[in-house]
């Protein structure tokens, strides 16, 4: 876990075979522009790979993206593994095509944001800052 006041570190990765990566490319740039450190893992990953990299890289946030409507599956695997590895202080945010009816479940898992396309970058940046501040207790 990064210390107070350090730059926010965000890991961006896509689990599964959904190839749509324009969203994560844009997000990566937007977060860097906002002064965050981005660890960009790309796509075609397993949930294990994302979680292990997040722990190794000592990130504050995992940002997930999916355009196949299956974020609930991805998010439940990722949050499960975070729990098993005692890394629940890592925030998980998500975006892409996320069915409305899945959003309550995602929130319950602790996955926040759940943004659709066209969400202003400033809104996402502010959300990440707030989530991390909550965890850091600032």
């Amino acid at each position: 876990m990064a210390e107070k006041g350090h730059k926010i570190r965000v890991l961006i990765g896509k689990v599964g075979f959904d190839p749509h990566d324009r969203g994560i490319l844009i997000l990566s740039q937007g977060l860097k522009d906002a002064g965050m450190e981005v660890i960009f893992l790309g796509k075609f990953l397993t949930a294990e790979e994302v979680v292990m990299a997040a722990i190794d890289e000592n990130v504050d946030v995992i940002a997930l993206s999916d355009h196949c409507g299956v974020m609930r599956l991805i998010a439940s695997d990722v949050t499960d593994l975070l729990k098993k590895n005692g890394a629940t202080d890592i925030c998980v945010v998500a975006g892409g095509i996320i069915p409305d009816e899945d959003k309550p479940l995602l929130e319950e898992l602790g996955v926040t944001g759940n943004y659709g396309m066209g969400t202003p970058m400033a809104e996402i940046v502010n959300h990440i800052i707030e989530q991390v501040s909550d965890v850091r207790g600032t």
Binding site: G16, P19, D66, C68
Partner: peptide, 22 residues
């Protein structure tokens, strides 16, 4: 579907998320 389009069968470990998507 997205998994098969990626050149693998449905029982590939990465396939489970996207089987029958699209």
């Amino acid at each position: 579907d997205t998994s098969t389009l990626s050149g693998v069968d449905p029982d590939h470990p990465l396939a489970k998320y996207d089987i029958m998507c699209n």
